[in-house]
């Protein structure tokens, strides 16, 4: 549905995006993740036809974003980063205005405006001036405007920036809901955001793709090997238990902390080791130790994200 081919974009002598290639199949929700200034917005602006690429190309549904720009724009619903709106217009006026720009005839426009007002929970605000709306409602107006012409592709640049936690939850919920029948690109510098909403994540730093995969794949890759946490009351056997754990196959390192007679072991597995929970459980059972916790922590995306972006900065 969306193909970005060897895209490079320079602003003067500054190279914002360097040789990025990306293809998004129909129906996928792709998260563009990267620190501020990584080049996410530039990639999106080229894709939407707002900026021409310096080298390479972008296309949507087979239409080139430069030479067939108006075909591309018809197929895209775009929510720009800062969600710019005309403050003096009423919500409903603005939506009708957008409908006219997309060439919707009167009846189709009426229906479309009602549909997005319903979908973005704007019913009570329809006659309100946009300039007087809270940030959360303004964001909904921006989303409503992007969905108005029912485009097959939605491009949302930082859709939750500046919202409070409840509004963020609502917006994510809406995005998940829209995901069903749209191909979507979502950019964010907030990790949990893309983690919960996207099928696939592309991490961008310093203008280039640094990682690409599903949440699971990246998590595995993020992959410091998994860690295990075990909390038991060893009585006087503390050192012996520790030794037994260290001796288990696949254990790379063990640290412990004692409190109120309980000991908390943090066990790092060797890379490629099998799941250690079973052998840890057996160990506890054999020694009949009182146990109150045993769990595995998988390598977090956060670690991968931080590692990738700091590597990119250092390069």
């Amino acid at each position: 549905m969306i193909v970005i081919d060897h895209l490079t974009k320079c602003y003067g002598s500054f190279r914002a995006v360097a040789d990025v290639s990306l293809s998004v199949p129909k129906g996928q929700v792709l998260g563009l993740l990267g620190p501020n200034g990584a080049g996410k917005t530039t990639i999106i602006r080229v894709m939407t036809g707002y900026l021409p690429p310096t080298v390479g190309s972008a296309s949507v549904d087979g239409f080139d974003s430069v030479t067939q720009s108006s075909e591309v724009r018809r197929r895209l619903g775009y929510l720009p980063e800062s969600n710019p709106l005309y403050g003096e217009m009423r919500v409903i006026e603005y939506l009708h205005f957008r409908g006219r720009l997309f060439g919707l005839a009167r009846q189709a426009r009426d229906a479309a405006v009602e549909r997005v007002i319903e979908r973005c929970w704007l019913r009570e605000m329809r006659r309100r001036q946009i300039g007087r709306l809270s940030k959360g409602y303004r964001q909904r107006v921006g989303l409503a405007a992007a969905m108005l012409h029912n485009p097959p592709v939605l491009v949302l640049d930082e859709p939750t920036s500046g919202l409070d936690p409840i509004q963020i939850r609502e917006t994510r919920h809406l995005i998940r809901e829209l995901a069903g029948d749209h191909t979507m690109i979502l950019s964010s510098h907030i990790l949990p955001e893309v983690e919960v909403t996207c099928d696939r994540i592309v991490i961008i730093a310093r203008g280039a793709i640094r990682a690409d995969g599903t949440v699971e794949q990246l998590r595995r890759k993020g992959g410091d090997a998994p860690r295990y946490v075990l909390e038991v009351r060893p009585g006087g056997e503390g050192p012996a238990v520790r030794q037994a754990i260290s001796a288990l196959p696949g254990v790379a390192a063990v640290t412990e902390a004692a409190r109120d007679g309980w000991m908390r072991f943090e066990i790092t597995a060797a890379s490629g080791a099998a799941d250690l929970r079973e052998s840890l459980g057996a160990l506890v059972g054999d020694r009949r130790l009182p146990c109150r916790e045993l769990h595995r922590e998988s390598g977090s995306l956060e670690q991968l994200f931080v590692r990738i972006t700091s590597e990119a900065e250092a390069a």
């Binding site: 018809r74 775009y78 720009p80 710019p84 005309y86």
Partner: peptide, 14 residues
Amino acid sequence: RLGTIESLMTCPVS
């Protein structure tokens, strides 16, 4: 100044 030019110019208008 407002940045609305971006949402205007990404509509199918020349």
